[in-house]
């Protein structure tokens, strides 16, 4: 009899526990919309237009004291800023898929270490014409499609939840805006002639990355993420701007996203273990 009482008590306890767990079970929409802002460095080389007259000697190892060393503002990286709208779909508790549209902006510029540099216009036989230019600025806009897979090592949806991300972005250069700042404003008349000589950026470029991220908030409410993308690999030898070509060196990126759940009939059942056990 005593044994029977103990068994009944255990069943009662188990039943109570089960009903408590069922109370904590809730559903979240599988679909959410993300609004993202991020940046990444793009390593590469300045491609100096041949029309620019050198204003300094190249490094000259034997007789360096006699000559200037250096070059027009050489640099080896550009920053790509992007903004995305990307729906995310929870496949399972631990796996999400994301895609959408990404607008990328890359600024590039040519400057001299002095007040201006000299740009050689297409010339005639008996003369050559140099135009003094203070700087050239180019803004490139591209539309891209990001594809991302996120894997959460832990199933429970804590307020802070870490994850891994595997991603790629396929970008299409849509338009460029180039401004030329002339030393002598009267030389504006040559603007079109100079613009015609610029190489056009490549239409397509892509990059691939893995990274780690941290989610702030719970999936049944708006939540945010911060991601560090490393390593990133960008497609090699792509002319990103008129004056810059990429290298496929390891690069780094950073992004932050705000997700807002979208109510749909597709739900994911979530047990909030945090509330359960805290």
């Amino acid at each position: 009899m005593k044994q029977l009482s103990i068994i009944i008590l255990l069943f009662t306890l188990l039943y109570t526990q089960k009903s408590e767990a069922q109370k904590l079970l809730f559903e979240v929409p599988k679909l959410r919309i993300g609004v993202e802002a991020g940046l990444l460095t793009m390593n590469g080389d300045l491609v100096k237009p041949s029309a620019i007259r050198e204003n300094r000697s190249y490094y000259y190892h034997n007789f360096g004291d006699d000559f200037y060393s250096g070059f027009i503002n050489s640099r080896n990286s550009l920053t790509n800023y992007y903004f995305s709208i990307k729906p995310e779909w929870s496949v399972t508790h631990r796996l999400t898929l994301t895609s959408g549209l990404r607008l990328s902006i890359i600024n590039d510029e040519l400057n001299s270490d002095q007040n201006y540099f000299l740009w050689q216009l297409p010339t005639g036989n008996s003369y050559t014409n140099f135009i003094r230019i203070n700087g050239v600025t180019q803004k490139n806009f591209s539309i891209g499609i990001p594809l991302e897979l996120r894997i959460y090592p832990k199933q429970m949806d804590c307020f802070l939840r870490q994850y891994f991300v595997f991603g790629a972005a396929f970008n299409f250069n849509t338009f460029s805006k180039t401004t030329i700042d002339f030393e002598n404003p009267a030389m504006e008349k040559h603007r079109e002639d100079i613009l015609k000589t610029f190489e056009k950026p490549d239409v397509f470029y892509s990059y691939y990355y893995i990274g780690i991220g941290l989610k702030f908030g719970k999936q049944n409410h708006p939540f945010g993420t911060v991601e560090l993308h490393f390593p990133m690999l960008i497609q090699n030898n792509r002319r990103i701007t008129s004056f810059f070509k990429t290298h496929n060196e390891v690069q780094v990126g950073l992004s932050t996203t705000l997700y807002i759940p979208v109510p749909t009939k597709h739900k994911l059942q979530i047990i909030d273990y945090n509330e359960d056990y805290e």
């Binding site: 050198e54 204003n55 300094r56 000559f67 002095q114 540099f117 000299l118």
Partner: peptide
């Protein structure tokens, strides 16, 4: 007058950088 035009700018030869 642009002083750049008065400078010596040494661009080494591809075959003999001296």
């Amino acid at each position: 007058e642009p002083s750049q035009m008065d400078r010596t700018v040494f661009i080494p030869d591809y075959n003999d950088y001296n």
